[in-house]
Design a binder for these strands. Sequence first.
DNA 1: CCCTGTCTTCAGAAATTTCTGAACATTCGC
DNA 2: GCGAATGTTCAGAAATTTCTGAAGACAGGG
Lengths: 156, 156
Amino acid sequence: MTGETERREAAEQLALTLVGAGMQRMGARAIAAFLFSEEESLTAGDLAQELGVSAGSVSGAIKMVAQMGLIERIYVAGSRREHFRMRDNAWTTLYSRQHSVVTDVLDAVEKGVGAVGPGRAHDRLEYMRDFYTFLINEAPMLVERFEQQRRGEPRS
Amino acid sequence: MTGETERREAAEQLALTLVGAGMQRMGARAIAAFLFSEEESLTAGDLAQELGVSAGSVSGAIKMVAQMGLIERIYVAGSRREHFRMRDNAWTTLYSRQHSVVTDVLDAVEKGVGAVGPGRAHDRLEYMRDFYTFLINEAPMLVERFEQQRRGEPRS
DNA sequence: CCCTGTCTTCAGAAATTTCTGAACATTCGC
DNA sequence: GCGAATGTTCAGAAATTTCTGAAGACAGGG
């Protein structure tokens, strides 16, 4: 049975790598806390205590990760607080959502294709457009395939 | 025939969306400049002029995008300057490289799996590990598939 | 060897992001 | 409706990132 300290350190370590991957600090710490928690759900107060930060920071972090689709609110009878838990499909959802940023890029590329005449730049832009379009089309199938595969071999 | 101003604006616009996608500002502006350039290659000086920034900034930006595998140095006879050009497979390369950050995350998750006993946290960590492992395995095939498909229908 | 053109490094300035804390809003039980 | 518990907002402080400019390193021609 491993210690509480070790668990927290592993959580902080994961948060750091998520920051390295582009996520914002407090959001990363929050999602790591959810991921590593043995509780069914956490409240804003729980998080503030676990992370040692102000209520304001927690409010912002929760809004962010909820917006990303990683956590959801659940209703707990007899509690006035807002309880949140990590969604089961959080990571596949996150992967699918990257699409919104990819479509933004794609829009900008399309504008570029329209803004330059034939030539090297035009060719490069077309290539980029084609690849990102391909990714957007393929991602849902990829996720689907993962879920099927996982259903196939349910437990380790 | 579209104007120079329009081309620059489209480039800056794309740079901004890349920043939104997590890339650093000057690196994004540099890669956009390469993408939109009609020249075969650009030098640090060209970039400094095109972007209106200092030589120091350009040096850092070039190092960054070269490190990402998006541009490569080419040797131009009779020129003492270092010429760079965007690699043909820049975007597929970039996609494949994301793996290094994904593997970092994966390492942290592995540590987490080891650090918690059986329970909810353990299950969540395993799920996350399985999904990211799946992605890492699938990505090369995805890129391969794109390239094959593109070879099939060469030009629009 | 020196000189010139080119690129890199790095300390500090500037800009941006992130966090806090306190005031305010909301909700629910009574 | 009132009061207590909980959550949100926002202005400013703190921390971090990014850019610049000047000094220095390096390479090649003469």
